[in-house]
C-alpha cells in the first residue's frame, strides 16, 4: 500500500468522526457510560479481593519444633516452607524474641515478674515460624505438608477463620465473575449497536465506493480506524474520571469513617489502574474495532 493511500485512510478515519459527529458522540458516550459502570464495579471488586487477601495473610500458621532441634535444622525447615508457591510470608521468632515481646506487653520493666524470669525464659522451646498463605483455601494442604517435615512438633492454624475467609473469597470471585461478565456483555451489545447504526447510515457511501472498485480493505480501513479512535476516546473518559473519583472516594471514606482505618484498606489508584487501565482501554478499543469491522462487513457485499 502506498504511503499516500495510508495517509488518505488515516485522514478519512478522522474525518468520518467529524462528518458523523452525532453518531460519533453517541458511540463515545455509550462506550464511556458502559466502561464507567464496568470500571466502578471492577474497582469495588479488586478492593474486596485485596481486603480478603489481606485478611488471609493475617491468619497465620505457627510451626513449633521438637525439643533439641538445632538452629540449622530449623533453618532447613524454614527453607522448605519458603520454597512453597502458596507461601506469602514466613518469619522466624525465637523463644527469646517471643518472651521479650510477651514480657514487654504484660510485665512492665522493673516489675517483679520481669525480674523473676529475667534469666529463665518460660517460653524455652517455643521457637517458631509464622507462616501466611497467599490463598487461604490452600492452607489445609500446606499444614499437612509442614506436619510431615522432620523436627516439626506441632502446627497451629485458625481453621474456622480460614474456612470463613475461603467462603468469602469464593463468593466474591463468583459474584464478580458473573457481574463483570454481564456488564461486559451489555457493554459489547450497546457499544457495537451504536457503532453499527453509525456505519449503517453510511451503507450508501460504502456501496458507491464498492461500485467504483474499492477493495474491502480500502473501504473498511477508515471505519475500523474510526472505531478504534472512538474506542480510545470512549474508554479515556471513564478512565480519567474514575482515576480522580476513586482517589476522592477513598479519601472521603477514610476521613469520614475512621473506624475503617485498620479494618479496611484500599488499593492505591496506581495499583488499581495497573490492571484497570489496560482492561478499560482494551475494552474500548476492542469493541470499537470489532464492531466497526463486522458492521462494515455486512455492507461490503455490493
Amino acid at each position: 500500500m502506498r504511503p499516500s493511500t495510508i495517509w488518505y485512510i488515516l485522514k478519512q478515519g478522522v474525518k468520518n468522526i467529524w462528518r458523523n459527529w452525532m453518531f460519533s458522540a453517541a458511540s463515545v458516550l455509550t462506550m464511556a457510560a458502559c466502561i464507567f459502570l464496568f470500571g466502578l464495579f471492577y474497582l469495588i471488586v479488586i478492593n474486596v479481593n485485596f481486603n480478603t487477601q489481606k485478611a488471609q495473610e493475617k491468619v497465620p500458621i505457627t510451626v513449633f519444633f521438637e525439643p533439641g532441634t538445632t538452629q540449622e535444622e530449623m533453618d532447613w525447615v524454614g527453607e522448605q516452607i519458603r520454597a512453597r508457591p502458596d507461601v506469602e510470608t514466613i518469619t522466624f521468632e525465637s523463644a527469646d524474641e517471643g518472651w521479650e515481646k510477651f514480657a514487654k506487653q504484660y510485665f512492665p520493666e522493673g516489675s517483679a515478674a520481669a525480674d523473676v524470669f529475667r534469666d529463665d525464659n518460660p517460653l524455652t522451646g517455643s521457637d517458631n515460624y509464622q507462616v501466611s498463605v497467599n490463598d487461604i483455601s490452600l492452607q489445609y494442604d500446606l499444614v499437612r505438608y509442614i506436619e510431615e517435615l522432620p523436627h516439626v512438633r506441632e502446627v497451629k492454624q485458625a481453621e474456622r477463620a480460614a474456612e470463613f475467609l475461603t467462603n468469602i473469597s469464593n463468593m466474591v470471585y463468583y459474584v464478580s465473575l458473573i457481574v463483570i461478565g454481564v456488564l461486559l456483555l451489555i457493554s459489547i451489545f450497546l457499544i457495537s449497536n451504536t457503532v453499527s447504526v453509525g456505519i449503517s447510515v453510511r451503507s450508501e457511501e460504502i456501496a458507491i465506493m464498492k461500485y467504483i472498485g474499492a477493495t474491502d480493505h480500502f473501504v473498511r480501513a477508515p471505519f475500523v480506524l474510526e472505531g478504534i479512535i472512538l474506542g480510545v476516546v470512549g474508554a479515556s473518559i471513564p478512565l480519567v474520571s474514575l482515576y480522580y473519583l476513586y482517589q476522592e472516594v477513598v479519601k472521603w471514606m477514610m476521613n469520614n469513617y475512621s473506624s475503617f482505618t485498620g479494618a479496611v484498606s484500599f488499593l492505591s489508584v496506581e495499583q488499581a489502574y495497573k490492571t484497570f487501565l489496560p482492561v478499560g482501554l482494551l475494552l474500548g478499543v476492542g469493541i470499537g474495532l470489532l464492531s466497526s469491522f463486522f458492521t462494515t462487513k455486512k455492507h461490503l457485499r455490493v
Binding site: R19, E204, I208, K210, G213, A214, T215, D216, F218
Partner: peptide, 24 residues
Amino acid sequence: KHRRVSKYRRKLGVVFQDFRLLKD
C-alpha cells in the same frame, strides 16, 4: 471470487440515474 470483484470493477465506469455521489 468476491475478492476479485473490486479489481474487475476498475475496468468499468459506471453512471447511475441518481448520480450516487459522496454528498459530503
